[in-house]
Every structure is written in structure tokens, then in C-alpha cells.
């Protein structure tokens, strides 16, 4: 039961991290109609910047700044140089061009930082553990991730529901032409949204750096999980991304923690471990397939 509580928290924490990525991906798709495979690369860039700066200076604050600046800067460059030319193109062209970007970023990072994974310590003031219920310690840093993620989600909800930018984002997702006709500089709006997405990806990278190995390819792994989130939630829907992210985070974490054990009730331990690992990895894809069978447009379509 205690283990379950811990895994539950892990799942939620993974979920909010996925949400940070999914929010950016889904906004960019909803408003610009662009599918960006390089979104995971921005996450990776953020994580590398954080780990590198933390390694050199030992300062978490500087690392945080570096992660946001690197991801935001890379995002702006990508938007300006490439994405901007893809707004009205086929999804196929978008997939292909951003696929090229992804190869580029992977190699760039490998060239600059090498292929051995980097590791980063959480800051000292978040390094300990707190007892969530008496006798059950849980790492403070993970709780901080959870809290930050929830805060960002609330902030995004406020931004979208209450501000002028949010109004344009909502309108842009459904009626692109009308927003243009209102005299809004649609280019600027696109750039802002893309930069916002990049910053969120950088933030996710910063959070991930102390708990995951920072290495080339980390972007793709999480990108594909993010796709699953976005498809489950409904493309273009930030609320859907939130629900989808928590679902995927929970299902993935709980499946990895408990499926092998459950299989051991039936199979021999070695078989159960091998099979369990595979089934657990596949769990979120099964979830997505199920959702699409019953709700082809996702749980909360935009």
C-alpha cells in the first residue's frame, strides 16, 4: 500500500512533466497546424544546458536560467528558420523537416557534450526527503516537480482563460482566418506561442535532468510518450493534454511497478520479468489504442 502511494506520486510527477511538453506540442499544433518532431529536442537541449551549467558552477539557479534560455533560444531559432515556412504545408513536409531538425540537434548535442550521459544533482535545499505520511519518506525534489507542474498548469489555464493572449490562442485554434482578420499580427502570435512551448519544454528538461540520465535520445523517448498524451487528450486541447498527461504518467509508472509482480502469480519469475517489462512499456500504447477505438478524436477534443 505504501509502495503504491509512492508509485502513485511518481506517476503524477511523470505526468506533470509530460504535461509541460504536451502543452507546448498541442498549442503549436492547435494554433499553427504544425506537427513538431523537434519538440523533444528542445527538452533535451534544456536538460543538457541545466546539467552542464550545474556541473560547472554548482548553482541550480544558474542551471535553471541556462535551461530556459537554451531551450527558448533554440525554439526561437527553429521557429524563425524552419517552422515559419511550414505553416501551410502538408503534415508530411512538417514531419520530414522537423525530423531533419531532430537528427541535427541529436548530433549537435553529441558533438558538444559527448555520448556519455551527464548526471545532475538536485539543489541542496531540495535534496532531502519529506515524510508524506508518517514513516514514508519521499524525495523533496520530486515533490517540487509535482508542485511546479501543477502551478504551471494553473498558470496556463489562467493565461488561456483570462488574458488577451489566451483569447487569441483560443480563437486561433479554431478560427485562424478570423484572428488574422482582427488585425492581430498572426506571425507574432505564432512566434510567442512557439516560444512559450519551447520554454515549457526547457522547464521540463530542467526538472528531468536530476532524475534521468541526460543523454542523446532522451528527447525522442519523451516525445513519443508526449504524442501519446496529446492523442489521448485530443489534439489542440490543453485541458486534454493535462488529463492525458496524468493518465499516461500514472499508467506507465504503475504498469512498470506492478505488472511484472502480477505476472509472477501466473508465470515463472524470469518469464514474468521479461514479459512484464515488455507489457509495461507497451501499456501506454495499449491505452491509446483503447481511447482511439472509443473516442477517435481523443478524450477532450479541442
Amino acid at each position: 500500500m505504501l509502495l503504491f502511494l509512492e508509485q502513485l506520486l511518481n506517476g503524477l510527477q511523470y505526468g506533470v512533466m509530460l504535461f509541460l511538453l504536451a502543452a507546448g506540442l498541442t498549442l503549436v499544433f492547435g494554433i499553427m497546424g504544425v506537427i513538431n518532431l523537434a519538440h523533444g529536442s528542445l527538452f533535451m537541449v534544456g536538460a543538457y544546458a541545466a546539467a552542464a551549467v550545474a556541473g560547472h558552477t554548482g548553482s541550480f539557479a544558474l542551471a535553471a536560467l541556462a535551461a530556459l534560455a537554451a531551450a527558448g533560444g533554440a525554439g526561437l531559432a527553429v521557429e524563425f528558420l524552419v517552422i515559419r515556412r511550414l505553416y501551410d504545408r502538408d503534415h508530411l513536409d512538417q514531419v520530414l523537416a522537423t525530423f531533419g531538425l531532430l537528427l541535427f540537434f541529436n548530433e549537435l548535442v553529441a558533438t558538444l557534450a559527448g555520448r556519455t550521459p551527464l548526471f545532475m544533482q538536485p539543489p541542496a535545499w531540495l535534496g532531502g526527503a519529506v515524510e508524506i505520511i508518517p514513516g514514508v519518506p519521499y524525495p523533496t525534489f520530486r515533490l517540487a516537480i509535482l508542485a511546479t507542474g501543477v502551478a504551471v498548469a494553473a498558470g496556463l489555464a489562467f493565461l488561456i482563460a483570462r488574458t488577451r493572449l489566451g483569447m487569441l490562442i483560443r480563437a486561433g485554434a479554431t478560427h485562424r482566418a478570423i484572428v488574422g482578420a482582427l488585425g492581430v499580427d498572426i506571425r507574432l502570435l505564432f512566434t510567442l506561442v512557439f516560444a512559450l512551448g519551447a520554454l515549457l519544454a526547457g522547464l521540463a528538461g530542467l526538472m528531468a535532468a536530476p532524475i534521468l540520465a541526460v543523454q542523446v535520445g532522451m528527447g525522442e523517448q519523451i516525445l513519443i510518450a508526449t504524442f501519446v498524451v496529446v492523442v489521448i487528450g485530443g489534439l489542440g486541447s490543453v485541458r486534454g493534454a493535462f488529463v492525458g498527461a496524468l493518465l499516461v504518467g500514472l499508467v506507465d509508472t504503475l504498469a512498470r511497478a506492478f505488472v511484472p509482480g502480477l505476472l509472477k502469480q501466473v508465470f515463472a519469475p524470469t518469464t514474468a520479468d521479461a514479459l512484464g517489462a515488455g507489457l509495461a512499456s507497451a501499456a501506454i500504447y495499449l491505452l491509446m489504442a483503447l481511447v482511439l477505438v472509443f473516442r477517435p478524436r481523443g478524450l477532450l477534443p479541442a
Partner: peptide, 27 residues
């Protein structure tokens, strides 16, 4: 059952599923 961008993503996800299947079959 899906189309457009959903189709792109769901085919990707199913391929990943098979990918992990072969990763996990140690035999």
C-alpha cells in the same frame, strides 16, 4: 479509424509497441 495527424501518431505508437515487445523478449 483515425486520419490525418492522428493517423501519423497512432501508427508511430503501434510501431513503438512492437519495438518494445522485441526489446523485452529476452529469449
Amino acid at each position: 479509424r483515425t486520419s490525418g495527424i492522428h493517423f501519423i501518431m497512432i501508427t508511430l505508437a503501434f510501431a513503438q509497441m512492437l519495438f518494445y515487445l522485441f526489446v523485452s523478449v529476452k529469449f
